[in-house]
Amino acid sequence: MVTNLQAAQAALGDLIEVAGQIAAFTGAGISTECGVPDFRSKDSPWRRLRPIEFDLFLSDALMREEAWRRKFALDDLYAHATPGRGHYALANLVASGKAASIITQNIDNLHQASGVPAERIIELHGNGSYAGCLSCGARYELLPIRRAFEATGAAPVCAACGGIVKSATISFGQPLPKEALARAYKASVACDLFLAIGSSLVVYPAAAFPSLARETDARLVIVNGEETPLDAEADLVLRGDIGDIFQPFAS
């Protein structure tokens, strides 16, 4: 484990320089410097405004209304968040051709805001910046939904088919998107350097991808503020502020 900042930056830079293809995997820790609250900290607003479980969302109109109330309350907490140094560092790796894709557990849309093309981002837990119909897949922007919700208190329904409209995030109990999982698997086995950044690496199946990459002979780097269950598997563990560690790579 490397905790000295300059040593951490140098060690990371050396591995990036010799890498042929990088896969980056990001969790909430990359966005905390941007003002986006994480899920696991003691005082996290996600604990107070816990998302409604998927089966309750489907079965109960009142729960759908409560889900949207909590959604908009959380959105207000980080409405002005902008990408951080870690996001821009990864955007540079994608732009340079070093990184083929970014696998993310985050729903905050900050990788897109940093300039990474949407098709290069693999969102395992969806995206909180828009909504979609669960029946026909029609996309809906949030501002009109919010205006209608605040005026009526009713959860939105699809104008095209009458189906249930939900934030495009993956709720507890909702299956992860098969296409995203397949793409993440492909990226993990194809890379020779896997960067796991800002993730506790305890939520499966997402947390399996670093080990998968390691099993296919990729080097594994874990950058996180706290220890993870996979630290012993890593070639390099960098413990510290993610933005500070990635500062040299962000410009």
Score class of each variant (00 low, 15 high):
Phe149Trp: 14
Ile245Glu: 01
Gln112Thr: 13
Ile197Phe: 14
Ser167Phe: 09
Arg146Asp: 09
Leu93Met: 11
Arg70Thr: 00
Ser171Ala: 15
Cys191Tyr: 10
Pro175Ser: 15
Ala207His: 08
Ser188Tyr: 07
Val18Glu: 14
Arg147Thr: 11
Val202Trp: 04
Leu236Ser: 06
Phe246Leu: 13
Leu236Lys: 07
Ile103His: 07
Glu233Pro: 03
Ala180Gln: 14
Tyr130Cys: 12
Gly162Trp: 12
Pro45Ser: 11
Ala61Thr: 10
Ile245Val: 14
Ser171Thr: 06
Ala23Ser: 06
Ala8Arg: 01
Phe246Val: 02
Gly132His: 06
His111Met: 13
Gly198Asn: 07
Val202Asp: 05
Arg47Lys: 15
Leu56Asn: 12
Ser200Met: 09
Phe172Leu: 15
Tyr140Glu: 12
Glu141Asp: 15
Glu66Cys: 09
Val221Leu: 02
Ala7Met: 03
Ala131Phe: 00
Val165Lys: 06
Ala28His: 06
Thr32Trp: 05
Ala234Met: 11
Leu230Tyr: 05
Asp217Trp: 07
Leu110His: 04
Phe172Ile: 04
Val18Phe: 09
Ala207Ile: 05
Leu142Phe: 10
Ser199Thr: 07
Gly153Glu: 05
Ser211Tyr: 11
Val2Phe: 12
Leu236Trp: 09
Pro51Lys: 09
Trp68Cys: 03
Tyr130Pro: 04
Ile121Arg: 04
Gln21Ala: 10
Leu220Gly: 03
Gly137Asn: 07
Pro210Trp: 09
Asn109Met: 06
Asn106Gln: 12
Gly163Leu: 10
Thr152His: 13
Leu12Gly: 06
Val165Pro: 01
Gln9Gly: 13
Arg214Ser: 13
Thr82Val: 05
Gly84Leu: 10
Glu141Thr: 09
Asn127Asp: 15
Tyr78Ala: 00
Ala19Thr: 05
Ala10Ser: 14
Gly126Glu: 03
Leu181Gln: 02
Asp235Lys: 03
Thr32Gln: 06
Leu176Gly: 01
Ile121His: 05
Gly126His: 02
Lys186Phe: 01
Lys166Pro: 01
Ala196Arg: 02
Pro177Gln: 08
Leu143Val: 12
Leu49Tyr: 15
Gly128Ile: 00
Ser96Asp: 04
Gly132Arg: 10
Ala10Trp: 14
Leu212Phe: 07
His80Ala: 11
Tyr204Leu: 11
Pro205Gln: 02
Ala160Lys: 01
Ala91Ser: 07
Pro210Ala: 08
Lys71Trp: 13
His125Val: 02
Phe57Ala: 04
Ala154Asp: 11
Phe72Asp: 05
Glu53Ile: 05
Gly97Glu: 10
Arg139Val: 07
Gly97Pro: 01
Leu5Gly: 02
Phe149Ile: 00
Phe54Val: 00
Gly84Tyr: 02
Gly86Lys: 04
Ala218Thr: 02
Gly13Asn: 11
Thr152Val: 03
Val18Arg: 14
Ile52Thr: 14
Ile222Met: 14
Pro45Leu: 13
Ala138Lys: 14
Ser199His: 06
Pro229Asn: 14
Ala206Asp: 01
Arg239Val: 01
Phe172Gln: 14
Pro248Asp: 03
Arg48Ser: 12
His87Asp: 08
Leu15Ser: 08
Pro45Glu: 14
Tyr78His: 09
Arg147Phe: 08
Lys166His: 04
Trp68Thr: 04
Tyr140Thr: 05
Asp14Asn: 15
Pro37Gln: 03
Ala131Met: 08
